[in-house]
């Protein structure tokens, strides 16, 4: 951990809201991205981020420096997002189109290329939606955010072997979908 972080954490632990805000500002956009991958839409992701940040603030005294603040906050946010998704899935099904969000076509692409890409994206979005929450989370953390497996294990509070299993299964399912 860099000393600046340590200094900010100590200040935040003594109740300094500015220090906590500074810590949050280093991770916020990335945490929201990760959470969005789980909740499936941005408004929920922002809500979950707020709840997770408040939880982090309220339990900051219990934060030990055995992981970075970033990993710790991400872990809280993932747990929050997974339970949010569980609750939400009881109430309604998540539309497949919402899972990865709409991606704008490039202006230079031809209409056909755009449609083809859109089709592939829809296909992949459907394949992503078929992954379990954990598989999708692990895949997103690894493939999109490039975290190390040991960091993901720390975030999900599980063994590295379990993370590898989820990753293998996610990659296998997505590839199977591509070839089908």
């Amino acid at each position: 951990m860099v000393p600046v972080d340590e200094h900010l954490i100590t200040r935040a632990q003594s109740g300094d809201a500015d220090a906590f805000d500074a810590l949050l500002s280093r991770s916020d956009a990335r945490v929201v991205q990760i959470v969005q991958g789980i909740t499936g839409n941005m408004p929920d992701a922002l809500d979950v981020f707020q709840n997770a940040a408040l939880k982090a603030w309220r339990s900051l005294s219990g934060f030990r420096a055995d992981s970075s603040f970033d990993t710790w906050l991400t872990r809280i946010a993932i747990n929050e997002a997974l339970s949010h998704r569980k609750k939400a899935s009881r109430l309604r099904a998540v539309p497949l189109d919402d899972v990865c969000g709409p991606v704008l076509e490039e202006a230079t692409a031809s209409p056909d290329a755009g449609l083809l890409r859109e089709d592939e994206e829809r296909g992949l979005a459907a394949a992503m939606a078929n992954l379990s929450s954990r598989e999708r989370t692990v895949f997103t953390l690894k493939h999109v955010h490039d975290y190390k497996i040991r960091e993901i294990a720390a975030m999900l509070d599980c063994a590295e072997g379990t993370v590898k299993n989820y990753l293998f299964r996610a990659v296998h399912k997505l590839r199977k979908h591509l070839t089908s």
Partner: peptide, 16 residues
């Protein structure tokens, strides 16, 4: 095909 979701900086600032 898999891209990071675009996050509006203003949304994040409001949340923070």
């Amino acid at each position: 095909l898999v891209e990071p979701v675009r996050v509006d900086e203003m949304d994040v600032q409001r949340a923070r």
